[in-house]
Design a protein around this nucleic acid. Structure first.
Lengths: 137, 137
DNA sequence: ATTAATTCTATCGATTTACTAGACTTTAGA
DNA sequence: TCTAAAGTCTAGTAAATCGATAGAATTAAT
């Protein structure tokens, strides 16, 4: 399941993608437009900025805007940024790999292979969902 | 990600599936064989029993055994039993549906459709992974 | 009756989650 | 240069969840 953070991030990106080119959106505007607690959204937007999905202008008349094409922002990326691994166990993960501590045969646990199959399919599906694909609904 | 409970459940089922027909396995035997904390495993086996994957014999010489074919126990079922919904949000879930509280257009949130696509693909993949498919590795 | 097993209920510490609070910094414009 | 309006940063917090443990109760074979 997605955390609220990830869900709000998607909704915020969706909001930004729906604005006119060159429009800058204030946090409060996004918060109200997408129904997200404002103070919580502040943190999320900072995370999105660190992830280079959006950028910001400070000071009066400042706000946020997309710096990545809505066609290039995928669900997979947002999931990883906020919720981490897409695989079902760390030992089956590409980006968040960790060996499992409780496997007797250290190199290969009994579940790893099957979970890697799942990961590949899920990842492929998640990479197919972009902000752009969500906007045109 | 899978919880430890779900992971241990899979490993316990795998252990049971590898035993001879008619063999009854004590909790402690499974715990040692699959490297799972015994007291924790007790709870998990009870859950698996309530889910009708295994059954038990009480008292001396008691223990656990599979009552469902290893070909018919899927990752999807175990995920649902221990970790709940497979969909990324409750509003996109088949078995754990709940409307999202923060969506303005109540019937359809902007993410729902895309997340249902993901759910269908993930579910299909997870239904393809059975205990039997994990055993023969 | 004894022993060995499952079953049930409760609890616990640590971590995570979903926020909130408030001080600080930056910028535009009067 | 002052002020209002914006983002930035660091903490904190209440509630829930997770991973596990404890111990008493029950059941069954000998």
């Amino acid at each position: 399941m997605l955390s609220h953070k990830a869900k709000y991030a998607l909704k915020a990106l969706l909001y930004l993608a729906e604005q006119d080119e060159n429009h800058i959106s204030r946090t409060v505007e996004i918060a109200e437009g997408a129904n997200i607690p404002k103070k919580f959204l502040e943190q999320i937007l900072l995370d999105l900025k660190r992830g280079r999905f959006v950028s910001s202008k400070q000071g009066k008349f400042g706000g946020y805007y997309l710096i990545k094409s809505k066609n290039d922002i995928t669900l997979a990326e947002i999931h990883r940024l906020f919720d981490g691994a897409i695989a079902l166990l760390p030992c089956a993960s590409l980006n968040f790999y960790e060996p499992c501590s409780d496997c007797k045969t250290e190199s290969e646990c009994s579940l790893r292979h099957g979970l890697m199959l799942i990961r590949d399919k899920t990842l492929k599906a998640m990479e197919g969902i972009t902000i752009a694909s969500l906007v045109k609904k």
